[in-house]
Design a protein around this nucleic acid. Structure first.
Length: 461
RNA sequence: GGUCCCAUCGUCUAACGGUUAGGACAGAUGGUUUUCAAUCAUCCAAUCGGGGUUCGAUUCCCCGUGGGACCGCCA
């Protein structure tokens, strides 16, 4: 059986990482089963759908490495087909026109609320025998849901879920203005796209019982369903677009690598034994729905950072450098071409002190900028004895022809003896003079990474 | 409130009837180190409660408690 999945976000806001994870799970399974992965933009809510969000969704997915097959599918382009199916359901007696006014529905809702029960439309027009059709009201079309009995879905993640049919109302499939609603459009499109597995967030679980009835009414094959638990924010509730650090863009800005975020998202709600780090190939090979847990998981920033740190340390330095370049250009300032080679050479020690690209950028400050500013509090540390040390260092430094760790060590050790101090006594003033900060990479790394002239110049100031 | 779902260290999770309940992140302590880190070693830390079933329950069943999702002419 072909394995065909889709990810179907609505372009009504930036895609958050919960959505990205859903897309990832779909995509991984498709890759594993050599199937098809489609992207369907569900834009039938004309009011709220925006072109910019559609673009953002595609960009976010592609950043993390998810590419959809074929061209993205725009749901609104298929509205006529959805309407056709609604008519067909009407003709076959699986749906009916409902002439209730908005006031009537509102009244019913209030009544239900008072009684403390969930609102279910009272099915007034399901049997219109004794009803007079109002002239001034355009009807909506409702699906004739089952009233009695129970329905069961066998969910690939959740297991068997059983509900009484009576709690599923006669939901609207065509609005007053004749446009189809989500319940209808999603089913028609999934059918037309030959979707074999619907893998989506837990919040869609109830919809499944509505949608299944449409499939059955139309005599269509019902796909398999898998509802994956939601991601919760630190507050413990469903992640929303309003939560801070919830969109892919937020993480890119923080300097998170796409592989790291992919790995983090993969492990959120899914596990394979004790394994923590998964290459892309391993994820495809090992991912399965059996390993997906049933309970929601909380977002944990320190863990994201920790995985990111791992990837920063392990990816190819040249590659890391390229990522840094892009990052700086986008969020900081473009790296000066003249600094590139120095920076590239320095990646091997810069990466060891970083959890994010932002961290690397911070530590590379002294490379990226010719003139360095020393904070007043640090300047205070450069007292007269320290300045003398710097002066002595400079004169020794100017004499050496080859700047290596060994040659520098020799100078420093000599100075330690001469000034009766320790390494810190030499290292700290040097670091401040060369980088403008007390914190940063190892002092030898700093000196070796800068060229001789730059060191001399900075020390002279 | 109704319906449904879920429940192992603070967090992510492993253990699909038999383990001293494991790993990772975070935290703590110590070693190393020129700063910040990193690194190494060690430590702290969990089966929500109560009943069953069973020789034996984290695991199966029931009840309670807690958390969540849904309850739109949104998707």
């Amino acid at each position: 059986m072909a394995f065909i999945c889709r990810f179907a976000p609505s372009p009504t806001g930036p895609l958050h990482i919960g959505g990205v994870r859903t897309a990832l799970f779909n995509w991984l399974l498709v890759k594993k089963n050599k199937g098809k992965f489609y992207l369907r933009i569900e834009d039938t809510d004309k009011e709220r759908s925006k072109e910019e969000f559609k673009k953002q969704i595609i960009d976010s997915l592609s950043w993390i490495g998810i590419k959809h097959d074929d061209k993205e599918y725009i749901q609104s382009k298929n509205i006529n087909k959805h309407k056709e199916i609604a008519e067909e359901l009407l003709k076959k007696g699986f749906a009916y026109k409902c002439y209730c006014s908005e006031e009537e529905i509102k009244e019913q809702k209030e009544k239900c609320k008072k009684q403390g029960i969930a609102f279910i439309y009272n099915r007034k027009w399901r049997d219109p025998k004794n009803l007079e059709i109002p002239k001034d009201i355009k009807p909506v079309i409702r699906f004739k849901s089952k009233i009695s009995g129970n329905s069961l879905i066998k969910d690939l993640v959740q297991g068997e879920i059983n509900i009484a049919n009576s709690i599923i109302e006669d939901f609207i499939i065509l609005r007053q203005d004749g446009s189809p609603t989500y319940q209808l459009s999603a089913v028609v499109d999934d059918h037309l796209m030959k979707i074999s597995h619907v893998i989506r967030g837990d919040d869609h679980k109830i919809n499944t019982f509505k949608q299944k009835q449409i499939y059955e009414a139309m005599n269509w094959d019902v796909p398999q369903f898998a509802h994956i638990p939601l991601i919760h924010s630190e507050k413990g509730s469903k992640l929303s677009k309003r939560d801070k650090a919830s969109t892919i863009d937020d993480y890119i800005k923080l300097g998170i690598l796409s592989d790291a975020l992919r790995n983090y998202l993969l492990r959120l709600g899914w596990a394979h034994k004790d394994k923590e780090i998964f290459t892309l190939d391993e994820s495809i090979k090992l991912f399965d729905l059996n390993g997906v847990g049933k309970s929601p998981s909380k977002l944990d920033m320190s863990r994201i950072l920790s995985i990111n740190e791992h990837y920063i340390k392990h990816i190819d330095e040249k590659e890391l450098f390229e990522l840094l370049k892009v990052y700086c250009q986008k969020f900081k300032k473009k790296i000066d071409a003249s600094k590139e080679s120095t920076l590239l050479k320095s990646m091997n020690f810069l990466k060891n002190k970083a959890k994010t690209l932002e961290d690397i950028y911070q530590n590379a400050h002294y490379i990226l900028n010719d003139s360095i500013k020393i904070l007043p509090e640090d300047l205070k540390l450069l007292d007269a004895p320290s300045k003398k040390i710097l002066k002595d260092f400079l004169s020794e430094f100017e004499k050496i022809s080859k700047i290596t760790k060994e040659s520098l060590e020799k100078i420093v050790n000599g100075l330690i003896d001469k000034h009766k101090t320790n390494f810190k006594g030499i290292g700290q003033p040097l670091r401040i003079a060369l980088t403008g900060s007390r914190f940063g990479p190892g002092i030898y790394d700093i000196i070796i990474s800068l060229n001789k002239d730059a060191v001399v110049k900075r020390l002279k100031n």
